[in-house]
């Protein structure tokens, strides 16, 4: 069965005609070619596909696109400001929080949600907030440092 879904993605209104079984992840990757939404497990276990759904982080592989009618969705492609990296993204780059980079978009989206909710997180709060986002390359140290550094510089604008 197919259905028309209307939602706002990275600030742009979209109307899509979709199979009702399609996940939000597949809609974003296949229909809108937002390839920064990464498929790491398909079961909500790794966090690589994390996007913001009405401001809340969700693993998009577990959300049905049809349930997103009227929603606002932000992916990693919608995080940067004009042509500049968001301060969080800049911090991730500068602190070495990125190696293979496959987990990075999910890390960015979850960190962004954390910082909007709690601009002054402790290290422990960052570590727990990101514990649903797996990384096999970095050992998380530099990712956590990057998120803490955004806090310290108080550069959150978005």
């Amino acid at each position: 069965m197919k259905k028309i879904i209307s939602c706002t993605i990275n600030g742009v209104k979209q109307e899509l005609y979709l199979d009702t079984r399609k996940t939000l992840l597949k809609m974003l990757r296949e229909d809108l070619e937002l390839m920064g939404v990464h498929l790491g497990c398909g079961g909500g276990d790794c966090g690589a596909c994390t996007v913001l759904l009405n401001g809340e982080p969700v693993t998009s592989c577990l959300v049905l696109a049809a349930d997103c009618e009227g929603s606002e969705i932000t992916t990693v492609e919608g995080v940067q400001q004009d042509d500049k990296l968001h301060p969080l993204q800049q911090s991730m780059v500068e602190k070495g929080g990125i190696q293979c980079g496959f987990c990075t978009p999910g890390m960015v989206m979850n960190s962004l949600a954390l910082l909007r909710e709690n601009p002054q997180p402790t290290e422990s709060e960052v570590r727990h907030a990101l514990s649903g986002n797996l990384c096999r390359c970095t050992g998380y140290a530099k990712i956590v440092e990057a998120v803490m550094d955004v806090k310290n510089l108080d550069r959150i604008t978005g």
Binding site: L34, E77, L85, V93, G96, I98, Q99, G101, T104
Partner: peptide
């Protein structure tokens, strides 16, 4: 020096 490919990876531009 930050990884040269990091800006593309952090913005979702890298093609895997």
């Amino acid at each position: 020096i930050p990884k040269t490919d990091a800006p593309d990876k952090v913005t979702g531009r890298a093609t895997y």
